[in-house]
Design a protein around this nucleic acid. Structure first.
Length: 420
RNA sequence: GUGGGCGUAGCUCAGCUGGUAGAGCACCCGGUUGUGGUCCGGGAUGUCGCGGGUUCGAGCCCCGUCGCUCACCCCA
């Protein structure tokens, strides 16, 4: 094995047959977004480093220790994007996409990068599908965004997942809670590292997996209890909207999101069949992000769904794809004259929209038939000297073994009739 | 960054207290000079991750190293 190149550590990559699942997931997630009027935005993989330090937040782990940052030839600091929202905001501001009717509704997909130690469901290059709805603060929009993710998972066939929901409230609510929470945390007997973590973002302690910390935090004041009337009403309306379209959720006041820009409604989809990394998607509202990045003071809401983890979840639930890759016809040509004739015929059939495969080289009829079988083709034909001289072939239905004599000129027409 | 597990055929793995490497699947050929799936017969493939040590002898023991993997922190 030495001397062979290997993919860099911790990257996810997809090749057949799994790559068709990857493609299926992406297509399936896109459909509900399109149905709700979201449009594609395709953005660069790398951005100005400062976009993330300012947008995502310097205190987050993502920015402080997980970014792929390098200097380009002009001496600029460049970072491979660790998440999608900041880049979308940059593009919206830069190209004045928020000048027209609001909200601006966009979706994106592609690779993201974080320099972490890889483990099950966590990669250094991973894939996300995300949407953003910018410029409108309406509980119904929050519910719409969540519904799009939910419907995507549903269409993929996932069942063993749940939606965790909470609200971080507005800045007034957060401020009043934060001082009480800090007071509480100060009274605890904590090691220095944990205390430092709490200083950066006290909410983090709610998420700590160590049982002793869980115990200490059991009595901690919850942000949900500190929401002012406006935030409370807003969150109530989000819940009502979700209930009205039968989307089940559980309120989880201890849920913590990793990025600093979240405000108001936040949510996370968790799958039960994965390892330690069980989140298959999450998102929330962000009030201050746009203005932080130099744009208008607009609110937005969005999500990011982890394609890699969705694939793992599919495998955990043993979900089969509806259709793999369908082949109409497999052509076996014997002898040089037949091969030349077949080559032309195959191109014509493909250009007419049929999925046509063929056997290559001369591997013998038996081997060629085996290849036909494995291709999953519905029909096969053998084209040799005899067929060339009579101008007709046996169109064989692979599943039944039954064959039908068809003239070469009528082949396309017959295939079309059969595949109806 | 910290800790556990594992590196043997294309894949999944077996390999006894150290004795010179195997199975299943996949692949190729044949049984059937031009018709697949089932069945039967045959075949190819390994620097046993890499380097060193112990030994008459190492896939197995020891040391180092690289890689993979799972978990912590954190997250998709």
């Amino acid at each position: 094995m030495t001397g062979k190149f290997q993919a860099p550590k911790g990257v996810s990559e997809y090749f057949p047959p799994r790559s068709s699942h990857f493609d299926f997931v992406l297509r399936t997630l896109t459909a509900p977004a399109l149905a709700a009027g979201y449009e594609l935005i395709e953005l660069p993989i790398f951005e100005d480093t400062e976009l993330f330090t300012r947008g995502v937040g310097e205190s987050t782990d993502v920015v402080s220790k997980e970014m792929y940052t390098f200097e380009d030839r002009g001496g600029r600091s460049i970072t491979l994007r660790p998440e999608g929202t900041a880049g979308v905001m940059r593009a919206v501001i830069e190209h004045n996409l928020d000048r027209g009717q609001l909200p601006v509704k966009l979706f994106y997909r592609g690779p993201f990068f974080r320099a972490e130690r890889p483990q099950a469901g966590r990669y250094r290059q991973f894939y996300q599908f995300g949407i953003e709805a910018i410029g409108l603060n309406d509980p119904q929009l929050d519910a719409e965004v969540i519904a799009i993710a939910f419907e995507g998972y549903r269409r993929i066939g996932l069942k063993n997942f749940s939606l965790h929901l909470t609200s971080l409230g507005d800045s007034e609510s957060r401020a009043s809670h934060r001082s009480r929470l800090m007071e509480y945390i100060d009274s605890l007997d904590l090691d220095e590292e944990t205390r430092n973590r709490a200083k950066k973002n006290p909410l983090r302690l709610f998420d700590d997996k160590r049982p002793e910390i869980q115990k200490l935090m059991a009595q901690a004041p919850l942000l949900l209890d500190f929401l002012n009337d406006e935030s409370k009403n807003n969150f109530g309306e989000v819940q009502d909207a979700l209930s009205s379209i039968d989307i089940p959720f559980e309120i989880n006041p201890r849920m913590v999101r990793g990025l600093d820009y979240y405000t108001g409604t936040t949510f996370e989809f968790v799958h039960s069949g994965l390892g330690a990394q069980s989140g298959i998607g999450g998102g929330g509202r962000y009030d201050g992000l746009m203005s932080t990045l130099g744009g208008q003071d607009l609110s937005g809401i969005g999500f990011g769904l982890g394609i890699d983890r969705i694939l793992l979840a599919m495998e955990a639930e043993k979900i089969e794809l509806p259709i793999a890759n369908y082949t109409d016809l497999f052509v076996i040509a014997l002898g040089e004259p037949a091969r030349k004739r077949a080559f032309v015929m195959i191109q014509e059939l493909r250009n007419q929209g049929f999925v046509v495969e063929q056997s290559y080289g001369d591997r013998g009829l038996k081997g060629a038939m085996k290849a036909a079988d494995k291709s999953g083709a519905r029909f096969s034909i053998v084209l040799g000297d005899a067929e060339l001289s009579t101008g007709s072939v046996e169109l064989k239905e692979m599943a039944t073994g039954q064959a039908l004599s068809v003239t070469l000129s009528a082949l396309a027409k017959t295939l079309a009739e059969k595949s109806r």
